[in-house]
Design a protein around this nucleic acid. Structure first.
Lengths: 234, 234
DNA sequence: CCATGGCCTTGACCTTGGTCAAGCGGCCCC
DNA sequence: GGGGCCGCTTGACCAAGGTCAAGGCCATGG
């Protein structure tokens, strides 16, 4: 199967490939693996030698850590068009995945050999800068996460999460469609599902939101921001 | 003043400069600024346009966030030989510092213009790979921090911190010298000073450690690991 | 049409660590 | 040498969120 044109097209949405020369990109597409994942299927486990990195084509993948007694903390939920595990390439020759990766929904990922990609990087600076940009974004994201875990409470984190889910451009009473089960969101926010449910209930009672299953209507964006002392606007 | 030889020597300890060609390094040394900081003096503030990045020559610098009501969370404590704020270079042209930086002790930092460094990166791949390595290490460090904030409790974090402070190679009853006031350590571990004090007291009562001001003797490394269910050895 | 199981909600209770307040000890500086 | 300050400790109390247990609500499949 030769999907090269549209595959290359899709890849260009990722920082990593955005600026890459056409021949280089083509070479990568030739060498990549197209992997199909059922919901709940693991892609890799923490501690495994990291030989590949990934581009999410369709579906939803969670990156997470497990505590000794099985509790799960989701570090990041990957969405289509994003790459992950690229940074591990530079952890030295014996690099290992620092997290687990598992499909939430049925998913399709493209896998690239790190060795191949590294060779390509050595002779192409545009690609390297794309990689630097994506790592720098991820660093910032993690710092934000640490801040909200330590300096803010559970309600803040949930509200911030909801506000992030509002599609750009929307001015009117925004509708948010939760893309994952609530338990997954809870783990991402480092709270228990019970607590998530209670906070949602509290916000609902306050008339700030309406909850219909996975569909949430935000009745008053500004009031919502105010409850957690977020500055107006975005 | 021309300290170039020993300055270059010191810079090579950082990943960022380790593999860099001698002429390039010399050029950077020529252009850098040598900054002296009194304890408590700010180097930069979150939100300021990021035009430089830094190498810590002497002293101790904290990177931290502030909550709206003044609580401080230290993200990282920089030690001599380390670079910081390099990643911001890739946040786009209007990059801003994502944290505050302030000297804990009297310190000396070298400051480099991002523009200059970026130009150099474009023509030198060794330097770029050094940068990638240091960003990748920092990513891993942040993920570890998120894990211990969410999946572990305060005692675990403190014990893990103490164990990290044990100098390599030591086999006998290890001595740890705290390099910063305990309040700083508390902020780094995201606990209150009172809690830090209590946990230390609990460990002391359990006969696991001895505390004499900033000097801590670990009486039983293995028992200490066991209290937080860390696997033996390192 | 009902049974099953997953996901979510709700209630009662508990634990960890935060908050507030008081006090101690060393250090610096007049 | 005394006053004051800072960093730390200790105690009493508190509250956010976790834990445990019991249902409810669908969707799915027999």
């Amino acid at each position: 199967m030769n999907h090269s044109p549209d595959v290359a097209q899709a890849l260009r949405h990722a920082y990593l490939f955005a600026e890459m020369s056409e021949p280089h990109l083509q070479a990568l597409v030739q060498g990549m693996a197209d992997i199909h994942l059922e919901p709940g299927k693991a892609l890799f486990r923490q501690g495994q030698p990291a030989e590949r990195f990934y581009f999410l084509r369709e579906g939803l993948v969670k990156l997470f850590r497990l505590s000794p007694d099985g509790d799960e903390k989701i570090i990041e939920i990957m969405r289509p068009g994003e790459t992950f595990a690229e940074a591990v390439m530079f952890m030295g020759p014996q690099g290992r995945y620092p997290v687990n990766a598992e499909a939430i929904n049925e998913s399709r990922v493209y896998a690239f050999e790190q060795k191949v990609f590294l060779n390509l990087l050595r002779e192409s600076n545009e690609a390297t800068f794309g990689l630097l940009a994506s790592m720098s974004r991820r660093l910032h994201m993690l710092v934000n996460q640490i801040e909200s875990l330590t300096l803010q409470n559970a309600t803040y984190r949930l509200v911030a999460y909801l506000l992030e889910q509002i599609p750009r451009d929307v001015k009117t009473s925004p509708e948010v469609q939760l893309t994952t089960p609530k338990g997954v969101i809870a783990s991402r926010l480092a709270i228990q599902p019970e607590t998530l449910s209670r906070i949602l209930g509290k916000l609902r009672q306050g008339g700030l939101i309406e909850v219909h299953g996975h569909h949430i209507t935000i009745r008053n964006v500004q009031a919502l921001r105010d409850t957690v002392h977020l500055p107006p606007q975005e």
